[in-house]
C-alpha cells in the first residue's frame, strides 16, 4: 500500500455486461474493486473508490456535472449526449457500430428515419444533404422499418444476425463505437494524482489486450 492516503474518486459505470467488464479492467489497472454481490444497492464504496451503477445514457451527465469524476461509456452514447467531457482512452471492448438500416431491396426516398439516436441521425443526414424527419423511439428500432413507420432506421449493429433474420440490410456505417473512459473537466486537473496513473495503467492494459485479441475495428 502507498504511504499517502489516495484521493477519493467516484466512478460512473453503465449497468449490464459493460459494468462487469469495466470492474474487471479497472481492478487490473490497480483500483481496489471487485464485482459486488447481487443486491439492490445502487452505489458501492470500495476503498477510496465509490461506484455508481447507472443507465448508460446517464453516465455522461454524471461525469459532465462532476457528480462522478470519471466513467466508462460507449462512444455511441457519448456522441449522442453532445456533452463536452474529456475522453482520453478507447478501452477497446463492447464494440458495435451505428448504422443506417433499410429493408432489403428498399429503393424509395428516405423521408422518415426512426432511431434511439436522434442527434447522431440528424447530423448524419444533414452531413449528406438529406432532409428527413426523425422519429425518436426507445427499443426494437428495426420494427419501424418493417412496419412502415419509417423508411429507414439508425441503430446499433453488433453481429448483424437480427438484421438477417428480419430481412434488413446495413447500408452505411455512421459510427464505430467501443467503450471509452470519460473524465470530468475539473477532476482531471484537481485529482490528477489519482487519475493520471489510472489512465496510464488502462492505456497499457488496452494496448496489451489489443495485441492479444485482434481488434474488431475496421
Amino acid at each position: 500500500m502507498t504511504p499517502l492516503a489516495p484521493t477519493p474518486i467516484t466512478l460512473a459505470l453503465p449497468k449490464g455486461r459493460i459494468f462487469e467488464e469495466s470492474i474487471e479492467l479497472l481492478a487490473r489497472a490497480g483500483l481496489p474493486l471487485s464485482l459486488p454481490e447481487k443486491s439492490r444497492a445502487l452505489q458501492w464504496k470500495m476503498g477510496h473508490v465509490t461506484l455508481l451503477e447507472l443507465r448508460n445514457q446517464d453516465v455522461p451527465v454524471y461525469v459532465d456535472l462532476g457528480i462522478a469524476d470519471a466513467g466508462i461509456v460507449g462512444k455511441d452514447v457519448l456522441a449522442e449526449s453532445g456533452r463536452s467531457i474529456y475522453e482520453p482512452l478507447d478501452l477497446n471492448f463492447s464494440h458495435c457500430r451505428l448504422s443506417l438500416i433499410r429493408e432489403v431491396g428498399a429503393t424509395g426516398p428516405v423521408h422518415r428515419v426512426a432511431s434511439k439516436y436522434p442527434r447522431l441521425s440528424a447530423a448524419y443526414l444533414s452531413g449528406r444533404g438529406l432532409s428527413a424527419e426523425i422519429v425518436r423511439l426507445s427499443g426494437n428500432i428495426e420494427l419501424a422499418a418493417l412496419t412502415g413507420l419509417a423508411d429507414a432506421v439508425v441503430d446499433l449493429v453488433q453481429t448483424g444476425s437480427t438484421l438477417k433474420a428480419n430481412n434488413l440490410e446495413e447500408l452505411d456505417v455512421i459510427l464505430r463505437s467501443s467503450a471509452r473512459l470519460v473524465v470530468n473537466r475539473t477532476a482531471l486537473k484537481l485529482k490528477r494524482s489519482e487519475l493520471r496513473p489510472l489512465i496510464a495503467n488502462l492505456r497499457e492494459l488496452v494496448a496489451v489486450n489489443g495485441k492479444l485479441a485482434a481488434p474488431a475495428r475496421g
Binding site: S84, E87, P88, V183
Partner: peptide, 8 residues
C-alpha cells in the same frame, strides 16, 4: 483536443 480525446 479540447475534449482531450486520444482515440478521436
Amino acid at each position: 483536443l479540447d475534449r482531450k480525446s486520444g482515440p478521436d
